[in-house]
Nucleic acid binder design. Structure first.
Lengths: 354, 354
DNA sequence: GGGGGATTCTAAAACGTTTCAAGAAACAAG
DNA sequence: CTTGTTTCTTGAAACGTTTTAGAATCCCCC
């Protein structure tokens, strides 16, 4: 049983090593030369007393910690953990620690975390904005002035600082073109919330592909969802009950696509025979669904890593103008897409159904 | 443009409100009566100057923060985020904030996070130990003496404090019995690392079921994996090349089961016709795999919530003896299990092999 | 208008570090 | 043995808050 039940501070180390508190600090931080005998005594006292500096006191005094905060909108969406891993790996290698907060797609909660994390004088902050993010406004407060910060995956409205995103429009453009090339002419989309730039961009890529193919976009073929499975399911039911029913659906992300799959199953429609489906994100599970899910791949891990590197630059004082990194997407073709039923097939199907 | 580019502290509020610093503090914390006019002046100064207390300074002075830390072993395993949500909801309602750290199944990293989080004088800590966790030893240091802490999902070796776990053995026991009742006699298991109590318990449930059915357990039918998909895939390949090949596999968790599915596909074996499969965790995606995955459900969200409540009790000073909450599991039957091929079927299958 | 008991307010000490100016010690050279 | 220079070491201030003891004020009642 150690005799040290009290918290051990620098004072006690100093006493035991017969040295001043300042010297202890210098040993701990290598902040000034300390002659060998003294240094040894200090080190020895530290290990024998089991001293660990109070990071709270240090952070308070230095007015800066070595923690980086990250706020994500939905920890249950497997895409975000991938991004987190990218951030974490880079930061950890650079001796920063990552603390993660889940805003739960609640802008209020996001704001609370922003404010409180800021109050802890983090080294930096990486934010994937929530759906209704007030990020730009919240961070406008002068308290945030010297907190390096990166906006990741989604551009918060009005955000002027660094950001890392993907070519959302290009992704859905490729996806939609792929469907067009297979012969689809009735292609619907289930978007994310249309005040999130991601969702808007993905919609625009879809629209561009159709426009280029001279196919008018039916307004009821554009359904606004919420980037989650349930809304995917609901919107899909709406779409699939339309007449004519679309032969292909572009989903705002893979969770939405999962919901679509559930809806298809419920209506006893086959995928891809009756309806083709393309998701967005390329989650690991896409290879295992039934059918396996064609999806627009985002480089989640690399997005995180890139954002972390950008943040490190800022922390180290770069004052380069705000960077907007935009990464590529890639269509991963799997089992959920195929050619549409021929006109004949479609007609017979239609008769049967009605 | 605000004129306050400098950080605004209590001192400035005090000055502007013509009041002492102590009074400001009392207003902010409701720690003593302050007469209406003064209180109003303070509040007014606070909002006009945009003051936000330095949580770092407060935490330092109070020697306690309102953050709770949580360390999880693998943020990419979708089971853990579920648990996190449970923890978070309870804590948030009680005005505590959750900060999450991902140990990445690296005991070294876990230790770093333990030590540094402790240095920030968190209100409490919830840990899902990593595979090789040194938790008990690390936390033995006196610094951790007054840090309430809960061990969640896995019992760290030697851990004596509060814990929340599930009936792992009962889970695999039920799973194995289900397979036995369907007629399976050659049942294999892919476990987690066998120094993790979860893995050991799950193995023991499997063994008990076989023992009760008087079926000898072939040692090569017990494969030790690592709770991840890749190891599930590798171990499954090993199992499926055995002769005789098992007709059913119990997987250590659902990620492992996903790996097994991949292996089955690669070997062109049908599930459940050729091999039945049961996972553990009941991830959301289980309903969407091909075939859908039978799994032992753990109440992830509720485990988290329970742990958070236990922690809150400790934070509030309960000195009840250490609690060990053990929650139930439930077999969720889906498409990946069926009766084994009969001897005849098996023979004809070889001939027919499409 | 003068106690006296509540209530409100203040000054100052602490919390554990870092940091800086300046003193002390060591060392090299004359 | 000085002296000058460099290298160590120290004491004390500062960081922004909370907290406590006691001073100031209020209010009521005689």
């Amino acid at each position: 049983m150690k005799k040290t039940l009290q918290k051990v501070t620098m004072r006690q180390i100093a006493a035991k090593a017969a040295v001043s508190i300042g010297t202890v600090s210098h040993v701990v931080n290598n902040s000034a030369g300390v002659r060998e005998p003294a240094r040894r005594r200090v080190l020895q006292a530290i290990s024998s007393l089991g001293y660990q500096p109070s990071l709270l006191a240090r952070g308070f005094r230095r007015n800066k910690t070595t923690f980086v905060g990250m706020i994500i909108p939905d920890i249950l969406n497997p895409f975000f953990p991938q991004v987190v891993r990218g951030v974490e790996d880079v930061l950890y290698k650079n001796a920063y620690r990552l603390i993660l907060c889940n805003a739960d797609n609640d802008d209020k909660k996001e704001q609370v975390y922003l404010n409180e994390l800021c109050g802890y004088r983090l080294a930096g902050l990486i934010v994937i904005p929530s759906v209704d993010s007030q990020l730009t406004a919240t961070v406008g407060n002068s308290r945030f002035a010297d907190l390096p910060m990166i906006c990741l995956d989604r551009q918060a409205p009005g955000w002027k600082g660094d950001s890392v995103t993907v070519e959302n429009a290009e992704g859905t453009y490729q996806a939609t073109r792929h469907l067009l090339e297979l012969g689809h002419r009735s292609i619907a989309i289930i978007t994310g919330p249309l005040h999130v730039n991601n969702a808007i961009e993905r919609l625009s890529g879809y629209e561009r592909a159709l426009r280029e193919a001279s196919i008018p976009v039916a307004p009821e073929y554009i359904q606004e969802g919420r980037f989650d499975r349930l809304s995917g399911y609901e919107r899909a039911l709406t779409l699939l009950r339309l007449s004519p029913c679309p032969t292909a659906i572009v989903a705002g992300n893979d969770l939405v696509a999962l919901g679509v799959l559930a809806a298809l199953q419920e209506l006893a429609l086959r995928c891809p025979a009756d309806v083709s489906l393309i998701g967005f994100d390329d989650l690991e599970l896409d290879a295992f669904t039934n059918p396996s899910l064609t999806s627009v791949a985002q480089p989640g891990y690399h997005m995180g890593a890139r954002a972390a590197n950008l943040l490190l630059d800022r922390i180290n004082g770069t004052d380069a103008p705000a960077q907007h990194v935009v990464m590529r997407t890639l269509l991963k073709i799997r089992g959920s897409v195929g050619p549409p039923l021929t006109a004949f097939d479609a007609k017979s199907k239609h008769k049967l159904r009605r």
